[in-house]
Design a protein around this nucleic acid. Structure first.
Lengths: 191, 191
DNA sequence: TATCTACATAGACATACATCTAAGTAGATG
DNA sequence: CATCTACTTAGATGTATGTCTATGTAGATA
């Protein structure tokens, strides 16, 4: 599975896909700078600069040296060039697709959003939310009829906002309702 | 001046700093795909995919082949690897900082006086007003001739007092006028 | 201890942009 | 010509994130 590769590439590109951070990298390439120096050079406030330095540090692209209360940051140019060289190769690019085809990706979504049986958060993107909803729908047996209270209780085992999730299950045609009674519907979108 | 380098780098990183686009790149690395195929693979709508393909095409990272009404997209892997290799070198990184000093202040002025594309207020000081006027002049293409009505309309997008601003553009020799026709003039003060 | 300095962290806010629906376009088909 | 298909374009909407102010913290200084 190439998911780790993809996420690392994504982190790398996101870290550098910002004009301010590129300028900071440029400044640090010349010599080490304190946070205040950077802020003055770029016309920004120090918290803003701290924030960007943190993001660069997350990828080990910069390192910090303390001197009193002053923090001097410098660029790890070798690390930057190494990542750039090793992350983007013909092989890596081709491997980005090796996970497509659905199933591996869906398991990843479930891993990301569940902690055990508990849904940590309702995914914002339609695509990922549908994966979670299919999983939820699978908590219901085919052919069985559930009163609304029972539906709420089952969903509540996994997430407190049962009302939203119940509505989404209906909206995405994973379950049907009539006179306050619910039942599971075969998932045609999966075919 | 390294600004062109910085902007190109920025475009490149922004283009790839998105999970969907990385997945598309991965898919196209294997073989050409139609828009519908990509949309189906990723669980997205076709307009979304078109949008991403357009962004990749802007950087010549993909190319398109028509067959009837179907558009087949494929990856220009060589171009991708070339950009990655040539954009991020020790030299280029160091050059990112070569422009600091004056320009930071100008960006600050623009930040202070603009709210998005809207000029909140015409700066009173000559120096700051000139920064704003240069920005306004950049809304006009070199070599193109604009009737006065068009000039007014373009300026109006950013501030209601187009008459004053249009006069200032002429007065500061950022644009020229003859027989009611306007055109952009190279900014000599920038050299 | 009290204060000051240089940063970091938290939270608010605004902008950029990924995605969607709706509408438009151009080639294929009857 | 009318219709269908595959795609693109336009406009709306929600989320992610860059920047800010306010506040917290750790080392220096008196």
């Amino acid at each position: 599975m190439s998911d780790a590769d993809l996420q690392l590439l994504l982190q790398y590109f996101k870290a550098l896909a910002d004009e301010t951070r590129l300028r900071i990298v440029g400044l640090l390439a010349g010599r080490e700078h304190s946070v205040e120096e950077i802020a003055a050079s770029l016309g920004l406030r120090t918290p803003t600069v701290s924030h960007h330095l943190q993001r660069l540090k997350d990828l080990d692209l910069v390192e910090m040296r303390r001197d009193g209360t002053t923090h001097y940051y410098s660029l790890r140019l070798g690390e930057l060039l190494r990542m750039n060289r090793e992350l983007m190769t013909a092989e890596k690019v081709r491997s980005l697709a090796s996970m497509e085809g659905g199933e591996a990706w869906e398991r990843k979504v479930l891993r990301d959003f569940f902690s055990g049986e508990e849904l940590k958060e309702i995914p914002a993107s339609r695509k990922k939310r549908l994966v979670v909803l299919r999983w939820l729908a699978d908590r219901f047996e085919y052919g069985r009829r559930y009163p609304e209270a029972k539906v709420n209780e089952i969903i509540s085992r996994h997430h407190p906002d049962f009302a939203t999730l119940r509505r989404e299950l209906i909206g995405n045609a994973l379950m049907q309702r009539e006179n306050g009674v619910y039942w599971r519907v075969p998932d045609t979108a999966n075919a």
